[in-house]
């Protein structure tokens, strides 16, 4: 029965991904046909793939933001989500779509669109929907808040729904996908690319900040805004969020998100969030010293509590 499942996945995923011909399981004569098909569907496919990847990124960012609202979130979950974000970002930086995404913000509609898409992504594919009477097989247990939000937007943006509905959910749902292989990197020399990525991202980040401050759309702020709020306790109050929206504390915030009140220094792999800071890399130094102090304070507190 496992075999048949795998088979089904593979067939449903054939028309996707221009790089599918590299697939190790393709083997034999199937390779050419796949390549042709891929070329035909090429443009559309790439678009839907990046749309889905984008959805995943948005979903992850929202999850991280929700983590952040908790004083002491589940560290394991936060780390896994943050790693996923980083993975997506690395891939997007590699194929240049990171820049495209930041441009999409310019169009001032990017975010709500992608929220819609993320809802579609997680719906059962049309074929499955016909066969089953239950249209919602996955009750949103943890993410009901998220889903509600998403559904509201979906109602407003029907045109996009119909376009994106063609996307096959199996594609991003963990099936065979050489597109994401590490060996699939377009250019070499990115092995130690962490530093390069960071630099590049910083530039993009600054650009994005400009765009953001120029447009000041509320949707964008709602998702990313809280990354910039430096608050020791959860502050669901939107008025408060606005009050702090100019304060740069993104490093500190992610930190809080991941550790639950544990102050710790420096920037790391989470450049994505770094990009969203309003002051760019110059703020690293002050915030890290601040954090060292907090660390010491924390330590002192522990000693006091211990005794």
């Amino acid at each position: 029965m496992t075999g048949s499942a795998a088979q089904q996945d593979r067939t449903s995923m054939f028309p996707k991904g221009t790089k599918r011909k590299c697939s190790s399981d393709g083997g034999g004569g199937g390779g050419d046909a796949v390549a042709e098909e891929a070329t035909a569907a090429g443009v559309k496919t790439t678009a839907s793939y990046s749309l889905q990847r984008q959805c995943l990124l948005d979903m992850s960012l929202i999850k991280l933001q929700l983590c952040h609202m908790l004083v002491e979130p589940n560290l394991c979950r936060s780390v896994l989500i943050a790693n996923t974000v980083r993975q997506i970002q690395e891939e997007m930086t590699r194929d240049g779509s990171w820049q495209i995404m930041t441009e999409a913000f310019n169009a001032s509609q990017g975010l709500s669109d992608r929220l819609v898409a993320s809802e579609i992504l997680c719906r059962p594919s049309p074929a499955r929907e016909q066969g089953e009477e239950d249209p919602k097989p996955f009750p949103a247990i943890g993410g009901c808040q998220l889903e509600e939000e998403v559904v509201v937007v979906a109602a407003e943006e029907e045109t996009l729904c119909t376009v994106a509905a063609e996307a096959d959910s199996a594609y991003v749902s963990g099936g065979v996908d050489p597109h994401w292989e590490a060996g699939d990197r377009p250019e070499g020399g990115s092995e130690d690319g962490d530093a390069d990525d960071e630099d590049e991202d910083c530039c993009l980040g600054e650009g994005e900040v400009e765009q953001r401050s120029a447009e000041g759309t509320k949707t964008v702020d709602q998702v990313y805004g809280t990354f910039e709020i430096k608050s020791p306790a959860p502050s669901p109050d939107p008025a408060l969020e606005e009050l702090f929206s100019d304060v740069d504390a993104s490093y500190y915030d992610l930190d809080t998100m991941l550790t639950g009140m544990q102050g710790t220094p420096k920037v790391g792999p989470y450049d994505l969030l770094e990009n969203l800071s309003s002051h760019g890399p110059s703020s690293i130094a002050p915030s890290s010293t601040c954090r060292t102090d907090l660390n010491e304070l924390d330590h002192i507190m522990e000693i006091i509590v211990g005794s």
Binding site: T2, A5, R77, L80, S173, G174
Partner: peptide, 21 residues
């Protein structure tokens, strides 16, 4: 041993509703 391999194609939904954790 595969516990519920049929969920492999549902990982995105399971990620969204947090069951994956």
């Amino acid at each position: 041993y595969q516990v519920h391999d049929y969920l492999r194609s549902k990982l995105c939904s399971l990620y969204e509703n947090d069951c994956i954790f």
